[in-house]
């Protein structure tokens, strides 16, 4: 890694290096904790790993998710109405990390501020979590988190967007550990007919800014899209397409089966990407 964070070994980076050695991109899968309930979300995340996800992203449900589209909003509102707590995330991290896959926690910033940045970092690390993805925290505002993540050996995944300037790509690449999350298009989470053409250029620009590993998210929902993105990115991040079978199923078991099918399909996609 570049910057001053080289002394902290990133578990996510180790997994991305392993998949790179296999000649493929990693598949990164997102699910919100607490949908349809906490135990079912843990089972779903474990099923996701069994079906071929390399890195797990567990979402902390939040009342004001400005980066999420309608599908994930609906799942998260359901989880909050069901009484899910931030501390449930810790239990989920522990249970899913037991699979051996790195588990990143995707969280809007206020729940962390409220919990206490240092305390949250300590407890995520103790639960076996690999780090945080922070969609509404830019490195400029992250002083306390940079410090806490170094102290507890956690990855810190920041986002870049097609609108990011060269200067900001470089700043974000220097601050990040694990990988940089490249948003494929301008917009919120959700499935799209095509992944933006901007994505490949953004990955190249982010690497030029100093990032060793760049994963692409937003809008990836099919094996073809996963294969396309997997040609040039270190990882393919999938959220809404994995949440959808859980939302549409009438039972948790049915949702898990549907999810596993979609995961296997996309896992096949990343394996065919580089021929």
């Amino acid at each position: 890694m570049t910057g001053t964070s080289h002394e902290v070994a990133s578990r996510t980076a180790a997994t991305l290096d392993r998949t790179a050695a296999e000649g493929r991109a990693a598949l990164v899968g997102y699910l919100p904790v607490g949908f349809p309930d906490v135990d079912a979300s843990i089972e779903a995340a474990r099923a996701m790993v069994d079906a071929g996800v390399d890195v797990v992203e567990l979402g902390v449900p939040y009342s004001d998710p400005v980066m999420d589209g309608p599908l994930i909003q609906r799942a998260v509102e359901h989880a909050l109405a069901g009484g899910v707590r931030v501390r449930d995330t810790l239990r989920a991290v522990e249970a899913v990390a037991a699979t051996g896959a790195p588990v990143l926690v995707m969280t809007y910033w206020n729940p962390v501020v409220r919990y206490g940045v240092e305390a949250f970092a300590r407890d995520i690390a103790a639960a076996g979590g690999a780090g945080l993805i922070t969609p509404d925290l830019i490195p400029d505002e992250a002083g306390e988190w940079l410090e806490a993540s170094d102290r507890h050996g956690l990855d810190r995944v920041f986002l870049v967007a097609p609108s990011s300037t060269t200067e900001r790509l470089s700043l974000t690449a220097r601050a990040a550990r694990g990988f940089v999350y490249a948003a494929s298009t301008m917009g919120v989470t959700g499935t799209r007919a095509s992944v933006g053409a901007d994505a490949e250029r953004l990955v190249a620009d982010t690497r030029r800014g100093g990032a060793e590993r760049v994963c692409v998210g937003l809008g990836v929902s099919t094996a073809e899209q996963a294969a396309e993105v997997g040609r040039y990115a270190d990882g393919v991040i999938v959220g809404s397409a994995f949440v959808r079978p859980l939302v549409e199923a009438s039972t948790a078991a049915e949702g898990r089966d549907g999810l596993a099918e979609v995961v296997r399909d996309l896992a096949e996609g990343v394996r065919t990407a580089r021929g």
Binding site: E141, L159, A161, S163, S164
Partner: peptide, 12 residues
């Protein structure tokens, strides 16, 4: 104060 927003909005 500050800016606690997605990176996508920073340029704007």
């Amino acid at each position: 104060g500050g800016r606690f927003v997605p990176e996508a909005l920073i340029e704007a």
